[in-house]
């Protein structure tokens, strides 16, 4: 029979204990990341699409770029001269390139809930094989959500959804609404201060599904954050706060969640990284998002 002895800490002197603790501390907390040079193969160039149709009456836009290798350190290359149309089955909207790689609908239109919108991108040869490619996507607009009210409250020691931000003073937007029990709902949230979009990148949008509150009243859940240590998010008395609530599809919820997860970076417990899902055909990356927007405003009071 073979047994290992566990030596109780009481049998060590203080000096020995300090040495052991110091050794363990050094092993456990010593830096374990390091920058390295890696040779990676070039990948096939693919089309990157950023496209949305919302319930706003506006000229909607599509941005087309080429994907690049991992260590390419320039601006993404825009894709020119594409033919882009969006149709709801009855009306077809044509898009024009107004800036390099930026296409705008010729006329303003508002997406209607219940309609399915189909995006078509043609006349592009992104992989440079001499054959023109066609990219298609479609998505149905959901009805917008009914918001009862929003409230503001201050937390001097708030832990943000954004893991890059430390605890700090935040103004928070609390939401009061009732989720529909009959439908599976997916929410997106972003805020404006005096009509200037604060959460203006996809990584700042909060997305949520109703799994844990299906059919329930939200009772003031925090859905908007204003970090009072960020210059563009500092609130003043009488600022007009607008909460935008997006009725998004399950596919778009997955896309944004996966993108945000990848943006947060990997840690020891992450699974292997994978490609983010897309609803665009022919191997393109990106998403054609179709959603309706509900706006709720409140006047901010500092006290």
């Amino acid at each position: 029979m073979q047994t290992k002895i566990l030596i109780p800490f009481s049998s060590f002197t203080n000096k020995q204990l300090k040495c052991i603790c110091l050794l363990m501390f050094t092993i456990i907390f010593s830096s374990c990341t390091e920058e390295i040079n890696v040779d990676v193969d070039s990948g096939e160039t693919r089309l990157s699409v950023e496209a949305a149709v919302t319930s706003d009456l506006t000229k909607h836009h599509v941005i087309l770029k080429e994907t690049s290798d991992v260590f390419f350190n320039q601006d993404a290359i825009p894709v020119h001269s594409a033919k882009i149309t969006v149709t709801d089955g009855k009306t077809t909207y044509n898009y024009q390139e107004t800036k390099p790689g930026y296409y705008e609908s010729e006329e303003a239109f508002a997406g209607q809930p219940g309609n399915t919108y189909s995006l078509s991108i043609t006349n592009v040869d992104v992989n440079k094989d001499g054959t023109l490619e066609e990219y298609l996507a479609s998505s149905t607009m959901k009805s917008n959500y009914v918001i009862d009210s929003i409230k503001m409250h201050f937390d001097p020691d708030y832990e943000s959804y954004d893991e890059d931000v430390d605890k700090g003073p935040f103004w928070l937007v609390s939401l009061y609404m009732k989720d529909d029990i009959k439908t599976e709902d997916y929410y997106g949230f972003a805020c404006r201060i005096n009509d200037v979009m604060v959460h203006d990148t996809i990584t700042e949008i909060l997305v949520q599904k109703d799994t844990y509150f299906n059919g329930e009243t939200s009772k003031g859940v925090d859905v908007g954050e204003f970090n009072q240590e960020k210059t563009d998010e500092i609130l003043k008395d009488n600022d007009i706060i607008t909460l935008e609530t997006y009725a998004i599809s399950e596919e778009y919820y997955d896309f944004v969640s996966q993108l945000q997860e990848l943006d947060e970076g990997q840690n020891m417990f992450s699974g292997p990284p994978g490609n983010i899902t897309s609803n665009i055909s022919n191997g393109a990356i990106g998403f054609f998002a179709v959603y309706s927007i509900t706006r709720t405003t409140i006047v901010h009071r500092d006290k």
Binding site: Q2, K4, S30, E34, E35, I36, N73, Q74, D75, M268
Partner: peptide
């Protein structure tokens, strides 16, 4: 500069010393 990508490796341990006492009876 967000356009510049960097590769970073994570390693677990460098050297790990250990002392064991075994006994048989």
């Amino acid at each position: 500069n967000p356009k510049v990508m960097k590769a970073e490796k994570t390693y677990l341990f460098t050297f790990v010393p250990s002392i064991t006492y075994n006994f048989k009876f």
